[in-house]
Design a protein around this nucleic acid. Structure first.
Lengths: 124, 124
DNA sequence: CCAACACATGCACAGCTTTGCAGGCTTGTG
DNA sequence: CACAAGCCTGCAAAGCTGTGCATGTGTTGG
């Protein structure tokens, strides 16, 4: 990852590289694994349909698949696919009740994230 | 002829649809345009390289492209592509100084978002 | 003027996502 | 038992995305 091609003596020479900026930038990035994890988290919110499903689940507590499809206007099959993604990623969890499966939001970080976005917090 | 199809009045009691859940879900989703806008915003953070670049810019103020490439460990060309995306989306802005171009974060919502994620806020 | 530097762009390709359809499974109902 | 509701899965088409390579533009230094 780090192409250590710079010799120490280069500091004397007038290069455009701002070492302070680079160090600050590296500090800002932090742990690569954390970055990767959050990028994956963000990618789950990066689709309008998925974001709608998540907002709906977050607001309407445990809710059935059909109701989600109704509320979001998304094909029931597509909702199932979305829920599978969210399930395997540990974002939501399912509870079976007869032939109805209700989903709820279980990932605390995602919940916090959804709540921290003012424009997405609808008054009720 | 047995009316097997459901007339509007029948839906309330004969089907599993929970009207309250559906209404709450719809309320939670809110404005579709807002959802779409935020989905696009999230999609910009959905790639590790892009997220790294954004974190670096956010932390290291106006910073040159080469320094960004150094700090993130991403090919300079790829960094340019990323910066173009972030530029056209209004997330960052460029300032030319000689043959150096420095980028800074200008989208307030994205900045707030980055700061609202505890794990991404590195101590300094 | 020439060369090195800093950055941007075009293009092509591999990889992933999304979507719809078709069918399957389980659970209630008559 | 037969059937329908509710939900899940597999599969293939279509679209989108990230990446590397080569090249182009503009600037500085000699």
């Amino acid at each position: 990852m780090a192409p250590m091609h710079l010799v120490p003596e280069d500091r004397a020479h007038r290069r455009a590289i701002d070492e302070h900026s680079v160090c600050e930038a590296i500090a800002g990035i932090g742990d690569p694994d954390t970055v990767r994890t959050w990028a994956e988290r963000f990618s789950l919110l990066a689709d309008p349909n998925r974001l709608s499903v998540l907002l709906a689940i977050h607001r309407a507590g445990p809710i059935a698949v059909t109701d989600l499809a109704l509320a979001t206007g998304v094909n029931e099959s597509a909702v199932s696919q979305i829920l599978r993604l969210l399930r395997v990623s540990g974002t939501v969890a399912a509870t079976k009740d007869g032939r109805v499966v209700r989903y709820r939001l279980v990932d605390h970080d995602t919940a916090t994230l959804l709540e921290s976005v003012p424009a997405l917090r609808q008054a009720g």
